[in-house]
Design a protein around this nucleic acid. Structure first.
Ligand SMILES: [Mg+2]
Ligand SMILES: [Mg+2]
Length: 1216
RNA sequence: ACAAACAGCGU
DNA sequence: ATTACTATAGACGCTGTTTGT
């Protein structure tokens, strides 16, 4: 604690701290609640509002009106001379009529007046604030401010709530003084009305006076989200962002408010490809008829030069610039069918392009950025919950040459965002068994950066509200009890009031970022369905920034992007992408993986029953509240630690998609947008969103061949539930020379092999095409399963290599900055590191997306070509190493392991350098590097090994680190006990002791273990086996052998509340349950085992036989002196069972020669020998010759193949 | 021995 | 027969368990 105090007493200048101390700081969370003052308690005053129950329509009208007022008052506020008023303390009581409130004038605290933290003497603790008087005023503001605002809000509610005692003003917090943006709210209704009047009489004039407009009439918005509804409002695009209130450039920090920009008349842009023999002007003539046919009244057309490329790599003539007719027409017109054909044109492109995509491409928008907006007008009727809302036409003039939206040439830093971290506590209703929300907790930060590390204190305020569960009452004295723990809680009379509470918070805070765990799939859906059930109506859409109503019938999950305008960050989604090897993605596990132990201790999981029981006493409710707040802060800390937002921001800025989509996960869309931008910028017509056969046939016209596109279309029509098998050959894995190595092993690894290959071989849609049909059966050509030739000369760089080059170069620059510049702040360092990471991620995912069937840039041929070159590269490297007389013991896709037979580190490194240089000599871009040196290594199988990495420090010392790859001990589907023992075995093996010592130690450990297990000394958690559901539990066809599915189904039928869904991980324990069922039918959850009513006991036998023994015996397979039977004996098992199997193993081993186990795997001459030069063993054989059934071209297969590869043969035979 | 299903490691 | 609705999106290579024939 002393240390922690030390940290928090630091001035903010002291930013040079390690991550560890950073974590410690955050670890304070709620450990000292008295330091965390609260702000928003005045929800109760909201409920003291008028009790009139309005009909829906009235509500709507009032809503619109007051929103308009609120928006209009913003203009007033932007005038520097305007003094904002605030109510006297007397107004704290709920006023019957707002007009009666007495206001006095007060200076709004501007940043100039308040010292920034860096110059404050003691900024860390709120109570030590230097400006005490200000402090006092603010304290009052905070309380009153809410009541006024809630008053406004309450008008909009048709809920009636009895008045509750007004709480005392909360203690002051430093954050309130620094970041008070609440001046928006404490404005009188008089002012609202007044401003509205002036505003509506002369809107344009009012805007001109408006401070948000610059002198050159540019309105600046930092956009970060967009929404479009192609059905209801075609051609309209909602852009969400923030705009500075103050236009004073001298001020160091500004106040930003949310703004919604409704862009209208974004055109539809389509391209017509003239038929051969028809000129572009022919097409223009025909357009007149086409337009008439589709009732397009107002269009423009022009002849432009464009390129188009063929994603199937068939036609070559498409690479030249050709005359194309561009047509633009209003998006509100019926859109043209994508397979439209005419007399003079072969096909039309771009019919499926959305207005958003057009805007992104036309304006080259890549990620959130500042935009200049001209000629905008405040909206007449509100459609968003933003503070400001404008209509704007896309084009500024009738000539459609200039647009009203432009990227800002000057780039101020992004504005700070308002971030709210939410968590909900739910409880099933005892009668209806519906899950209900009983508690809402939120942490608020008003100045959250979008592009850099989170603030050291990731939140400034909190709020928490609680209601009684369905059939019990809240214990009396609850609020007092909470106050004694320095927690301010709100109690509301019911679930609906609780939802309204949350909604009012959203109205107040207007958060830009919503952070939560399992929000998208559970929290948000629950919120919406409860709002639907309780008929909350329009206001429920304040969870986002767009007005929406939703009828009570259709499912809530059909609402598209309910939080549009606000960025929803779900850490369980982000963690899936960022932390790939995680046992599960529930909050507890994420805390374990991401946070330190100190923070982890704050985590408390309340089961349903525990939650219900908590309501027996006020103290236990307070505990629940405390735990909920702690969990919320843990969510926020994980969010900060993983740097979800900055990384998503960088990725979005690279790819040019929507930030909210990046946050939803998935690589394909990012990659699509990256390429969309790249190809559009270079005047290429971009592939359609949904593939249309007319485009393909139009291209195919030049060459009379069929290709696999037909088959793929069929595939999609079939909609087979069966997951499609792989469609092309991937990386090469060299046959491992199994065994234990006690000499140094050298690990060489190509850096980013696939991106390098794209550069090295200039792989692009524009540079390669399929081999013409009349191919000569060249030996080299046939061995490559994708037959391509280079279409362009090598000086013309393709677009994919260029994009990769740009990414690599920029990454190199950023890394250089990190390395060289010493005068970087910690914050910048972190920022650069994120950017560097984002570049790498983007470059690496390009290859994968080429092979992704639903990608807009899907191209199996290119993907297959890249992997093919990868195999070639690896084989060549292997051959080089072997020609240098070194022993290659293993290699996987892009790596080679070499047994140096040496134990001298420096010598090994010298060898490595020599080999590296030899290999790198051949390539311009491909580069191999020394990835490490192993002191010793246990190589068991392909992709399964353990090794002891040795590294030399600058001080000539050696550091050792264990590396485990693919072994059972790194897999979540083995119980922790088996993994721990396995880890022990590996550590003993790698310890370098003599073989006998090693085996002795292991045998002894196993004997102890058997006893420990039988005497029940092992913790039950050690027995948990984790398995993920890849489908929804009900979608599995045969459940018999799938314990995790059985448990999920049972859980979902028995339990109320959150259901097990696809993607969830189930942790189960195999138990003796008295039945004769197989072990697979005796899986139980830990709670089921522990519950007092159960008579379940752990099935020790299963664990010994099926978990521990196989794991151990596999690890010890290469060692003589022990065998599975003996290991079983050590564990106290009947070893005779294994004797037979052992014999069988021996015989097969003898056949295959255990000692020189070079080729004991039949399937090891698969792709390796197919395409490499290692086919010496089959030199004598005649090639397999077969004609293509279509064109009778002879194919020569000059290598062996195995059954698995028959399909690739077939592809050649049928020219598919 | 084969098949199917299911895991989730590896690059 | 028509309509509304549903879900989900980087690749491939390799080893392991369970059930069933
Ligand atoms: Mg590599
Ligand atoms: Mg590698």
């Amino acid at each position: 604690l002393k240390k922690k105090q030390h940290y928090s007493d630091h001035d903010d200048e002291d930013e040079q701290q390690t991550n560890a101390s950073e974590q410690k700081r955050r670890a304070q969370v709620f450990a000292k609640p008295q330091e965390e003052s609260t702000g928003m308690h005045d929800i109760k005053s909201m409920f003291a509002a008028s009790k009139t129950r309005n009909v829906q329509r009235q509500e709507q009208n009032q809503k619109d009106e007051s929103d308009k007022l609120l928006s209009d008052i913003m203009f007033k506020l932007q005038k520097p001379k305007l003094k904002t008023t605030r109510p006297t303390p007397a107004a704290a009581a709920p006023p019957p009529q707002p007009a009666k409130i007495e206001y006095k004038s007060v200076e709004i605290s501007r940043p100039e007046q308040i010292s920034t933290p860096s110059v404050l003497p003691t900024p860390s603790l709120p109570t030590h604030n230097s400006n005490h008087s200000l402090h006092q005023e603010k304290e009052l503001d905070w309380g009153d401010d809410d009541s006024i605002c809630f008053d406004a809000v309450s008008k909009l509610m048709n809920d009636t709530v009895p008045p509750i005692k007004h709480p005392s003003p909360p203690p002051i917090s430093k954050s309130l003084i620094q970041f008070d943006t609440q001046e928006l709210e404490f404005v009188t209704d008089e002012q609202l009305v007044k401003s509205a009047r002036t505003f509506h009489t002369s809107p344009t004039k009012e805007i001109d006076q408006n401070e948000i407009l610059n002198k050159d009439e540019h309105f600046k918005i930092f956009w970060f989200d967009a929404y479009e509804d192609p059905v209801a409002q075609p051609g309209k695009l909602f852009i969400f962002g923030k705009t500075p209130l103050l236009n004073d450039d001298k001020s160091t920090s500004k106040t930003f408010v949310s703004v919604c920009l409704i862009i209208d008349n974004i055109p539809k842009q389509v391209f017509f490809i003239p038929k051969t023999g028809n000129s572009a002007s022919d097409v223009e003539d025909e357009l007149f008829i086409i337009a008439k046919r589709f009732k397009i009244t107002n269009y423009t057309s022009s002849i432009v030069k464009k390129r188009r490329f063929d994603p199937d790599l068939i036609s070559t003539d498409v690479l030249n610039e050709i005359d194309i007719v561009e047509m633009k027409y209003p998006a509100r017109c019926t859109s043209l069918p994508s397979d439209l054909q005419g007399d003079s044109f072969q096909c039309v492109y771009g019919t499926n392009q959305s207005p958003l995509e057009y805007l992104l491409m036309d304006k080259k928008l890549k990620g959130p950025c500042w935009l200049n907006i001209k000629n905008c007008a405040p909206v007449k009727t509100r459609r968003s919950w933003c503070k400001l809302e404008y209509d704007v036409d896309y084009y500024s003039g009738a000539d459609r040459l200039m647009t009203n939206i432009e990227i800002s040439t000057i780039n101020p830093p992004p504005p700070p965002l308002v971030a709210v971290t939410l968590s909900l506590v739910t409880l099933p209703n005892t009668k209806t068994h519906e899950t209900e929300v009983i508690c809402v907790a939120g942490l608020v930060h008003q100045q959250f950066p979008i592009d850099s590390a989170a603030p050291k204190r990731p939140y400034q305020n909190y709020f928490i509200a609680l209601t009684k569960p369905s059939d019990c009452i809240l214990p009396s004295g609850l609020v007092k009890a909470a106050e004694s723990q320095k927690i301010k809680i709100e109690t509301v009379p019911g679930e609906r009031a609780l939802l309204m509470y949350l909604i009012s918070k959203f109205q107040l805070l207007d958060p830009d970022v919503i952070i939560g765990h399992d929000m998208r799939m559970f929290g948000l859906e629950l919120f919406l369905s409860r709002c639907q059930k309780l008929k909350v109506g329009l206001t429920a859409s304040k969870i986002g920034r767009l007005h929406r109503t939703h009828d009570g019938k259709t499912k809530v999950s059909t609402i598209k992007n309910p939080t549009c305008g606000r960025l929803l960050c779900d850490i369980s989604i982000s963690a899936r992408e960022l932390l790939t090897k995680c046992k599960s993605y529930d909050l507890e596990e994420l805390c374990k993986v991401v946070l330190n132990t100190e923070q982890l201790q704050l985590y408390r999981n309340y089961s349903i029953d525990q939650t219900r029981d908590a309501f027996s006493s006020s103290m236990s409710v307070v505990d629940l509240v405390q735990a909920t707040l702690n969990n919320t802060s843990l969510i926020l800390n994980i969010f900060c630690q993983l740097m979800v937002l900055p990384l998503a921001y960088q990725l979005t800025c690279i790819a040019g998609n929507l930030l909210s989509r990046t946050l939803m996960g998935g690589r394909s869309e990012r990659n699509d947008h990256l390429l969309l931008h790249a190809f559009t910028e270079r005047d290429y017509i971009v592939p359609e969103r949904s593939l249309s056969s007319s485009h393909r046939t139009a291209l195919k016209h030049t060459q009379e061949i069929h290709n696999e596109s037909d088959e793929e279309i069929d595939d999609e029509n079939k909609k087979t539930t069966k997951p499609s098998s792989t469609s092309y050959i991937g990386g090469l894995v060299l046959a491992p020379k199994k065994g234990f190595y006690d000499h140094f092993i050298l690990l060489l690894d190509f850096n980013s092999l696939y991106p390098s290959i794209i550069q090295e071989f200039n792989v692009c849609f524009t540079t390669y095409m399929k081999k013409p049909t009349q191919s000569r059966p060249d030996s080299e050509q046939t061995q490559i399963d994708v037959d391509d030739i280079i279409a362009l000369d090598e000086t013309t760089k393709g677009i994919l290599p260029l994009e990769i080059y740009k990414l690599v170069e920029r990454r190199r620059e950023v890394k250089k900055l990190i390395k060289e510049k010493k005068n970087l702040t910690d914050e910048q360092l972190v920022q650069y590191d994120i950017r560097q990471k984002a570049y790498k991620l983007t470059a690496n995912s390009l290859y994968g997306c080429l092979g992704f069937k639903h990608s807009r840039f899907y191209c199996k041929q290119l993907a297959a070509f890249i992997t093919c070159k990868g195999r070639e590269t690896l084989m060549q490297a292997k051959n080089i190493v072997e020609r240098m007389n070194f022993d290659v013991i293993y290699g996987d896709t892009d790596s080679i392991m070499i047994n140096t037979n040496s134990t001298d580190y420096d010598q090994v490194m010298a060898i490595g350098t020599k080999i590296r240089n030899e290999i790198n000599r051949q390539y311009k871009h491909i580069e191999i590097g020394i990835d490490g040196v192993f002191k010793c290594m246990l190589l068991l199988k392909k992709k399964k090994y353990a090794a002891l990495i040795v590294e030399k420090t600058p001080t000539q010392e050696f550091i050792y680190k264990t590396e485990l790859k693919g072994l059972d001990i790194v897999r979540r589907d083995w119980c922790q006990l088996a993994r721990s023992i396995g880890e022990f075995v590996v550590s003993v093996i790698l310890s370098g002791q003599s073989r006998d010592d090693v085996l002795d130690k292991i045998h002894n450990r196993l004997r102890d273990l058997g006893d420990e297990m039988r005497t029940g000394k092992i913790d039950i958690e050690q027995y948990e086996i984790n398995r993920q559901l890849s489908k929804d539990p009900s979608d599995y066809s045969d459940v018999k052998s799938l314990p995790h599915v059985q448990i999920a189904v049972r859980f979902n039928t028995t339990s109320t509340g959150r259901k097990m869904k696809r993607g969830d991980t189930i942790s189960y324990i195999v138990c003796e349950d008295g039945t004769q069922n197989s072990a697979m039918q005796r899986g139980y959850l830990r709670e089921e085992v522990l519950s007092s009513s159960s008579s379940l006991t752990i099935d020790i036998n299963y664990y010994l036989h099926q978990q521990i023994l196989p794991v151990i015996s596999r690890l010890l397979e290469p060692f003589d002196g022990t065998d599975q039977a003996y290991l079983a004996l050590c564990l106290g098992l009947d070893s005779s069972k294994y004797k037979n199997r052992q014999q069988k193993n021996y015989s097969s081993k003898d056949n295959n020669n255990v000692e020189n186990n070079n080729d004991d795997d039949d399937d090891d001459f698969n792709s390796e020998l197919l395409f490499g030069e290692g086919s010496e063993a089959f030199k004598q054989c005649d090639p397999f010759v077969f004609p293509c059934v279509q064109c009778q071209t002879l194919n020569f297969w000059n290598a062996p193949f195995i059954f698995n590869e028959v399909k690739f043969i077939l592809q050649l035979a049928f020219h598919m």
